[in-house]
Amino acid sequence: MEHQIRNRLVQKEYICRVDGNFPSEVIECSEPIEVVSYKIGVCKVSPKGKECTTTFQKLGYNPETNTSVVLCLPHTGRMHQIRVHLQYLGYPVVNDPLYNHTVFGPERGRGGNIGKTDEELIRDLISIHNAENWLGIDGDSDLFKPSFGLEDEEKGGGGGGGGSREASPCDSSSPTGVAPMVRPQPPATSPTALCQMVPTPMVNNANNAKVTVATQTGHEPPDLSFHLDKMTTDPHCYECKVRYRDPKPKDLVMYLHAWKYRGPGWSYQTELPEWAKVDWVEPDE
């Protein structure tokens, strides 16, 4: 099978749900696709792109939701090929967080009309991603405020005025403007305490046949359980102050499903998801 995949002998069929009433006739899109940024993973139709072809066929239309179920047959394997071609045709995947977004312009990239340079597109995509997934900085949202004692440290830690979102690593009380380094001192240990730290040899007890870390080394295993009171934070760390939004269950599924695989001498078909039914309506949260 690996040999067949490498030599492009495996045919794939996908099912998707798109916005709008997709045309009834079979549509073949052969627009070349260019990778705008490998780093953030975004592509677009462009004359400078690589050749690729996708065939689409409508399986049904739901007027209640104004969505269509479409069969997709990619003849090449470009990055995001199906999603980009559907965007170009003006029928993006219903819940595609990338190619069904106004960041591609008021027409959401239909016909390749984006209206901005690649640099502007990348900048806007990063900005929108941050705005939609971050709750804020310094715990300025009531949706998620874990109590790590960070607020108390900032109030009493000499951070100065509250106008800046990033705490300064410098301490104004220091003559050089840099906070003095305090080296941690090892705890004082008396000879008596040292003697108490020497592991006691394990007694060979016939009734205790269980082999554990303690029976092999003479030491109990470390406590790896989580304790909130043991957590420490750095008041000067920017990442410690960023709060991220947990995705909702519907955000983890996109209405694009790999349905059938077929190669020389074999075939495989998966079950269709609920959203692939023509009369399916997305339930309310």
Rank of each mutant, 00 (worst) to 15 (best):
T232M: 08
S168I: 11
T215R: 07
S267W: 04
E166I: 15
K241E: 02
G156T: 13
Q185T: 13
Q196K: 11
L228T: 10
G158F: 05
K260W: 02
P222D: 10
P201T: 10
L252K: 11
H236F: 13
A214S: 12
N205R: 07
S174Y: 07
P201F: 07
C195S: 12
D234V: 09
K155A: 15
P191S: 09
V198M: 00
K155V: 15
V198P: 00
R262G: 06
A206H: 05
K241C: 08
D171S: 14
L224V: 14
P249K: 04
D171G: 12
E239G: 15
S168M: 09
G162D: 11
K230R: 14
Y238W: 04
K155G: 09
T200V: 15
T212R: 04
P201S: 02
S267F: 08
M202N: 10
C240E: 03
M181F: 14
Q185N: 08
Q216I: 12
V211W: 00
G161A: 14
P180D: 10
A214C: 09
P186R: 12
L228K: 05
W259I: 01
P191Q: 02
A193R: 08
Y268W: 08
N204C: 06
A214N: 06
T192Y: 04
H257F: 12
H236K: 12
P264D: 12
Y268T: 03
D246Q: 11
M202E: 03
L252Q: 08
Y244Q: 05
V242L: 13
S225H: 02
G157Y: 04
H236G: 10
S267D: 03
L252R: 05
P249E: 00
